[in-house]
Simulated scan of single mutants.
Amino acid sequence: EQYDGCVVPWCLYLHTIVGTDERGTFRRPTTKMNLFQSVTSALDNTLASDPTAVIFGEDVAFGGVFRCTVGLRDKYGKDRVFNTPLCEQGIVGFGIGAAVAGATAIAEIQFADYIYPAFDQIVNEAAKYRYRSGNLFDCGNLTIRAPWGCVGHGSLYHSQSPEAFFAHCPGIKVVIPRGPVQCKGLLLSCIADQNPCIFFEPKILYRAAVEQVPTEAYTIPLSQAEVIQEGSDVTLVAWGTQIHVLREVANMAQEKLGVSCELIDLQTILPWDTETICKSVAKTGRLLISHEAPITGGFAAEISSTVQEECFLNLEAPIARVCGYDTPFPHIFEPFYIPDKWKCFDAIKKLISY
């Protein structure tokens, strides 16, 4: 793996990220961070190292509703961290222009649910800018951040997971982290990438468990899934918050059924890592994909279709999808809507007994 210009073995890669060697000795300064603090740290590193970097969005000057940009205006000035009007189309349009002019543009959409007014700017302008100019011009220095996913009480307009809408659009990258270490490394990779990126941050994880995260800048490769737990009987695939659900499900399956699950965090939705997923399914013969978004047209369908084409002769059971329902995201019925551990556990039992 490429890291700070050096090649390190994959077995040491995660140790390198979190600042330890194979013996657990810290090699880089780290500090405890939750997910929103890791976002702040990544943005702080970027503003410090890149004089062209600017951060803008609704309320980011005082830290934003989730406090991800807190303190950055005071540290770097109002010309580099500033509020915008309440207009998502304008935020992304401005970001495209700033990136084309040579700035590192980091836009915040206050909630992923409100990214739709900017859909035209993202899909018809940002994603196509390089292609339509024959690579003479590009807006690859644009990164769009947005809180994403269910939060326990968000209801219709604060709990959506719109990643599949953008997965249909060549020219952009879509990334979703599962925790603080991954969040900082993937966000810095998005900011450095020469393509416009959408970075969805699981809002329910903002203040969840902390991890030891390096204070210095580091990157995690995009379009590379991570095998979190190896197994032999069933492949489990998810991203963001749902990874933590499936981790618990994998433990339940081992304890109650004696089933060995291989757990994979997709991390990048577009372009996604087909090789890692298909290699795992060829080994286990069974696949379960889970996400919070509605099942019809959700990204699980794309994974399922690709695996069916590539691994048809390896499959021991139909591919299972455990996802949200085809309804607006409910409020009081959220516990029944989300793909919880019991739904996923039942799906594993069906896969095994097929």
Rank of each mutant, 00 (worst) to 15 (best):
A225M: 01
Q229E: 12
S232F: 05
V234H: 10
G240T: 13
G240P: 06
Q242V: 15
V245D: 07
L246W: 09
L246T: 14
L246M: 15
A250S: 14
N251D: 14
M252H: 06
A253T: 12
A253S: 01
A253Q: 03
Q254R: 14
Q254V: 05
L257D: 14
G258F: 08
G258Q: 12
V259E: 05
V259W: 10
L263S: 02
I264S: 11
I264H: 04
D265Y: 06
Q267T: 08
T268G: 00
I269F: 04
I269T: 02
L270C: 01
L270F: 02
W272H: 10
W272S: 08
T274Q: 15
T274E: 14
E275W: 05
T276W: 03
T276I: 10
I277S: 11
C278I: 04
S280A: 03
L287Q: 13
L287Y: 12
S290D: 14
S290N: 14
I295G: 01
T296N: 00
G297P: 02
G297R: 03
G298S: 00
G298V: 07
A301R: 06
E302T: 15
I303A: 09
I303R: 07
S305Q: 10
S305G: 15
Q308F: 08
E309N: 09
L313T: 14
N314T: 07
A317N: 04
P318Q: 01
I319E: 05
I319W: 07
I319T: 01
R321M: 04
